[in-house]
């Protein structure tokens, strides 16, 4: 059989068509950029990782609020690729200063490392509101900076979640904590809240390990903890993603119902699990409203009202 070589130009055309195929996705990227120079105040919302459903919900809530109040302000939303990429978040603050926004509403990826750049932003005339993860009080004091905080009390929330479990267990029952990234302030607060409840209920804490906020890492950690402690009765997880990993580990070990699992955040994925008992409790921080509270505080500041005092937002328990 004789093979017919494709003409060179035909081959090139095919390459180009294939290379251009991704352009089909372009319409999906159509962005609603309010880059116009209007007289409305400009609010920049700087988030942590938008790959995390919690922050995505937060950003969506803010966008909805802006759409409903489009006459009052313009909104620019930015997030970072990865929870730990502090340098990227510092860069975002500087870019928003260059964009001459009036106010920055920020969920800092680190409680201390963002302080110097926020100080520079304030010196450039930008007003600041801190949401979600509270900036470190000592670092703020040393920098001579005051930033109003709007957000949940993670320690109190975590304590209430752990209390649901504590009520179901006898004193002395063995429990373990799967914490988030140990450098994150909210992670530390949740761990502290869990420990508060464990202490006051007289439970035995047999181990604390980090699941790095992620489902698969938490799954590995939970599996190891379950085999190490055959009499373990509860796994307290610092967020819902990690709780999902823990639930899978409990199921794989055939101990569903014998090991209680709790999480934090109240993402939609865990609702059916709470309903059928695979998870005992979680905390709903009303992510969709968190950024909105921050923006409302920011608008008040811009109107010349005195900067609000720190404002604690509602945390509700999610139980059956």
């Amino acid at each position: 059989m004789k093979t017919v070589p494709l003409a060179l130009w035909t081959r090139r055309t095919i390459y180009f068509v294939f290379a251009a195929l991704p352009l089909l996705f372009l319409p999906a990227c159509n962005q609603n950029n309010s880059g116009s120079t209007s007289a409305r105040p400009r609010v920049a919302l700087i988030m942590k990782s938008l790959a995390n459903e919690f922050f995505l919900t937060m950003a969506d809530g803010a966008k909805k609020h802006q759409a409903a109040h489009s006459a009052d302000y313009d909104l620019i939303v930015n997030g970072i690729k990865n929870e730990t990429d502090l340098a990227e978040q510092v860069g975002l603050v500087e870019q928003m200063v260059a964009q001459q926004v009036n106010v920055i509403v920020i969920a800092p990826a680190d409680s201390k490392a963002l302080v110097p750049v926020l100080k520079r932003a304030q010196a450039a005339g930008v007003r600041l509101v801190n949401i979600d993860n509270k900036l470190d009080a000592d670092a703020l004091k040393e920098a001579g900076l005051t930033v109003p905080f709007v957000g949940p009390d993670n320690r109190e929330g975590a304590r209430r979640v752990a209390e649901v479990v504590a009520k179901k267990l006898p004193a002395g029952a063995k429990v373990a904590i799967i914490e988030g990234i140990p450098t994150a302030f909210n992670g530390q607060q949740r761990r502290a809240g869990f420990e508060d409840a464990i202490k006051s209920a007289g439970l035995t804490l047999v181990g604390v390990q980090s699941g790095q906020w992620e489902i698969d890492k938490a799954n590995n950690v939970a599996t190891a903890m379950l085999s190490e402690h055959p009499d373990l009765q509860a796994l307290l997880c610092g967020n819902d993603s990690m709780a999902l990993g823990a639930v899978a580990a409990v199921q794989a070990a055939g101990r569903t119902g014998k090991v209680l699992v709790v999480g934090y955040d109240g993402i939609p994925a865990i609702r059916p699990m709470v309903a059928d008992g695979r998870m005992t409790a979680s905390a709903d921080q009303h992510a969709d409203q968190l950024a909105v509270f921050g923006i409302e505080a920011a608008l008040k500041i811009l109107k010349g009202e005195a900067p609000p005092a720190d404002q604690t937002t509602v945390v509700d328990l999610v139980t059956k």
Partner: peptide, 21 residues
């Protein structure tokens, strides 16, 4: 690219698509 995409407020998925391209 990073600065420009942040200033126009491009969303995270768009940032990554554009940077890769």
């Amino acid at each position: 690219l990073e600065a420009g995409l942040a200033q126009v407020g491009a969303s995270e998925p768009v940032k990554r698509l554009v940077t890769g391209a």
